[in-house]
């Protein structure tokens, strides 16, 4: 199997602990830079992957899931993709967040708890990333995001 056959360029699995989220951000930014993602967008990649990982860590902790959080970073000719997967089961399928709605929820709640952080995290991701997909089912959830690489924007 060669690169481009759907195999991730770099894969990361880490224990669902807050202290490891920074490591995931650093690795994602380094691989994105190497893949040719524009320097100006690297901050967004760092923030978005951090939000996705924080959310996954929070879901694992609150659901008592001992499995690691998965991050796969894939570089192809036109884009750089990140998938962050958790194994926290939930009944809902498909979920998107709107920034203002999440903010209103955060302010109306009694305290800035895990749930509002979760919604605000999704609001940040959807505000930052044009190409994003959030899915979940009874086995867990996945956030898929992608950014164009410099070579792609040069030819288009």
């Amino acid at each position: 199997m060669t690169e481009g056959d759907g195999m991730a360029t770099v894969e990361l699995r880490f224990s669902a602990l807050p202290e490891h989220v920074r490591t995931a951000r650093l690795v994602a930014a380094a691989v994105a830079r190497r893949a040719g993602v524009d320097e100006a967008v690297l901050d967004e990649v760092r923030l978005a992957v951090g939000e996705a990982c924080s959310r996954a860590v929070g879901l694992h902790i609150s659901n008592g899931v001992t499995a690691p959080v998965r991050v796969s970073l894939t570089e192809d000719e036109k884009k750089f993709s990140i998938e962050v997967g958790d194994e926290a089961p939930r009944a809902v399928t498909g979920h998107t967040a709107e920034g203002d709605a999440a903010t209103a929820d955060a302010l109306s709640g009694d305290d800035a708890g895990a749930e509002t952080d979760d919604e605000m995290g999704l609001a940040v991701i959807s505000g930052l990333v044009d190409d994003v997909e959030v899915t979940s089912d009874e086995t867990g959830g996945v956030i898929r995001m992608s950014w164009p690489t410099a070579t792609a924007s040069a030819v288009s």
Binding site: R25, S54, A106, L107, D111, A112, M120
Partner: peptide, 16 residues
């Protein structure tokens, strides 16, 4: 250097 939604949540909590 870096702020994420968890930090925003803390600031909102402080404001309240």
């Amino acid at each position: 250097d870096f702020l994420d939604s968890t930090g925003l949540g803390v600031l909102v909590g402080g404001l309240k």
